[in-house]
């Protein structure tokens, strides 16, 4: 119980200290995860929409695969990316192992299926609702696509947030790929693992509380933006 009490005071102390080391860890966590989510959206939105609207042989299999990849264990993704980027691997010459870039690559692979799969479901539901209407208007594929995506934008933020939640919370991939190097690849989750391994349980929990607060802030910001945008859309 004492650990919990100490943890809250440590979290508070960390937040108000503006300690340079601590801020660089928080900054890197956000930079890696937000970049990965952005790239995942660039791939996942079109991919999900495409799979929801296109009719091709093996589509059922593609949907199944996409849904399965949502549950891909971070440690497995970490291992695969590690083997690819290791000096002994095919992309070893790039020297990317143990860099933030490598961590972004791994998290992008983790997040893309989540964004794509949730996009597919959202767009498919919308299509069931408006498909008839769009067809009667003789809308071309491009108009159909853009209409659906614009209409789905509020539901799609859930896909983005789910992806962000996955990225910011995972430790398995970034630990293997980044190596938890101080000032270079140490993020919130790997710092928590490190403090736990030193037996500094209250510091570790304090970092965990800060991480939760960070996720809360990002979600609140998105909800705020979404809310005001929805109000504007309703007025228009």
């Amino acid at each position: 119980m004492e650990t919990f009490v100490t943890a809250f005071s440590e979290a508070g102390a960390l937040l108000v200290s503006f300690d340079a080391d601590f801020l660089s860890i928080v900054g890197l966590s956000l930079r890696v995860s937000l970049t990965a989510v952005a790239i995942a959206c660039l791939i996942g939105f079109p991919l999900g929409t495409l799979i929801s609207l296109a009719r091709f042989p093996g589509r059922g299999g593609a949907v199944l695969l996409l849904n399965t990849f949502m549950g891909m264990p971070p440690v497995v993704v970490g291992l695969i990316v590690f083997l690819l980027l290791s000096r002994a691997g095919p992309f070893g010459v790039l020297g990317l192992l143990f860099t933030p870039t490598a961590m972004i690559i791994a998290q992008t692979i983790l997040v893309t299926p989540i964004v794509a799969a949730l996009t597919r479901q959202t767009v498919e539901d919308l299509w069931a609702e408006y498909g008839e209407h769009l067809r009667s208007l003789d809308a071309g594929p491009l108009t159909t696509l853009s209409t659906l995506i614009v209409d789905a934008r509020f539901s799609l933020t859930t896909a983005v947030l789910a992806g962000f939640g996955r990225a910011i919370a995972e430790v398995g991939a970034v630990m293997i790929i980044g190596g938890n190097i101080e000032h270079v690849t140490r993020v919130m989750t790997t710092a928590i693992a490190l403090e736990t391994s030193k037996g500094n349980l209250s510091t570790a929990l304090g970092l965990g509380i800060v991480l939760l607060a960070l996720a809360l802030a990002v979600n609140a910001a998105v909800q705020l933006i979404n809310g005001s945008a929805a109000r504007r859309a309703a007025l228009a």
């Binding site: 290791s86 000096r87 002994a88 070893g92 143990f98 190596g179 938890n180 190097i181």
Partner: peptide
Amino acid sequence: VRTIVRGTGAILQLGRSGD
């Protein structure tokens, strides 16, 4: 110097591949 921390077995393996 940047340091990566693992068990000796893992470190030797990574050293072998030149990482």
